[in-house]
């Protein structure tokens, strides 16, 4: 396990050691050149400092050998660096044929990951250790960029086409991924957790749909509350955030909307608020809830609603909620 240095974070992919070696080659060469240039400058500034105003230094003759050498030597150095960088760049661009493919969608301001068996998860990328993984990425709005510092890899994610990025993790653990192409208000919050599992654990994780296959709805709703990023805007403890708190929300009668009218917060209203957040706006809040939750599965929506119900001790007679469906059964 490499813990990282002052310059670079820890290495957790097969590519990282090579990139780091090249980084340090350029780094040390630069230091030598820098010390040479600045050292000579300081030495001259001291040695030839003006001692009295009448000095008339004789002109220094040009020196062809010197001039040629300081053209040729740097040229050789940069050609070495170029060739080396070019080789590792080609390696980074060519995923091994046996790679495990995960589809990635970037969207202001979330990452969602879809596995070959249909399991899908937001803002968490789970991968196996010791196996090449290839991300097939696209964006549904503006340009984003997927960056995992410990893997030393990055690729822009474009709205009109697929781009690809691959890596092979060498360490298990939890790491961070960032969006590095500026994409608006929450750009800096558009990060994701990268969880590297042992191969067996990973198989298990995918099979159980991200470890949530058998969870009861309210419990699954709690997981989604975090995974889907609802927690960024909605609190559970009554405190105010970008959006209204969920504490005591369900069951509220005469819930005020921005237009002045009121509604009863039942399962239908919650469902509509999740799937079409712009349709009814809670009074005192902006229309800023992301509209991309309409891609949540039926199970996910009902689980979220079940979880929200748990956050309130109010109740409604089920007559008010004809479409409650399976969510009601969970309570």
């Amino acid at each position: 396990m490499n813990d990282g240095t002052i310059w670079l974070p820890e290495q957790a992919s097969t590519l990282a050691p090579e990139i780091d070696a090249l980084f340090y080659f350029v780094y040390w060469t630069s230091i030598v050149l820098f010390v040479g240039v600045v050292g000579a400058m300081l030495y001259f500034a001291y040695k030839y400092r003006r001692q009295h105003p009448g000095e008339r230094p004789a002109p220094v003759k040009e020196n062809k050998l010197l001039e040629i050498s300081w053209i040729v030597i740097p040229t050789i150095l940069v050609l070495i660096v170029f060739t080396w960088g070019f080789q590792s760049f080609v390696k980074m661009g060519t995923a091994p044929p046996n790679s495990y493919e995960i589809t990635v969608t970037g969207e202001q301001w979330n990452w969602s990951f879809t596995y070959p068996n249909g399991t899908s998860i937001t803002n968490e990328l789970h991968v196996p250790v010791g196996r090449p993984v290839r991300l097939k990425m696209s964006s549904s709005d503006v340009i984003h960029s997927f960056f995992v510092p410990v893997f030393r890899t990055k690729q822009d994610v474009l709205p009109d086409r697929y781009t690809y990025l691959w890596f092979e993790a060498t360490e298990t653990g939890t790491f961070k991924a960032f969006c590095t192409e500026y994409c608006g208000t929450q750009h800096s919050a558009m990060d994701a957790k990268v969880v590297v599992h042992e191969q067996g654990d990973f198989q298990q994780w995918v099979k159980t749909g991200g470890g949530v296959a058998d969870m009861p709805p309210a419990e699954y709703g709690k997981v989604l509350y975090e995974r889907q990023g609802c927690n960024a805007c909605h609190s559970l403890d009554g405190s105010d955030g970008t959006g209204p708190t969920w504490q005591g929300l369900y069951g509220t009668k005469n819930h005020p909307l921005s237009g002045g009218e009121t509604v009863t917060v039942d399962a239908n209203y919650l469902r509509e608020s999740i799937l079409q957040p712009g349709a009814k706006i809670a009074a005192g809040y902006g229309n800023v809830m992301p509209s991309n939750y309409n891609s949540l599965s039926e199970r996910q929506v009902t689980s979220l609603i079940a979880f929200m119900k748990q956050q309130s001790d109010k109740t409604l007679d089920s007559g008010g909620a004809p479409l409650e469906g399976s969510a009601g059964a969970a309570q």
Partner: peptide, 29 residues
Amino acid sequence: MSFLFLFTIGGLTGIMVGVLSVDVHLHDT
């Protein structure tokens, strides 16, 4: 003299970000 000091660092790090595979890590940071 400040210029010589600072621009040398700027130029050398320009070489660093010009290295294809290293720039993949450093770009937009």
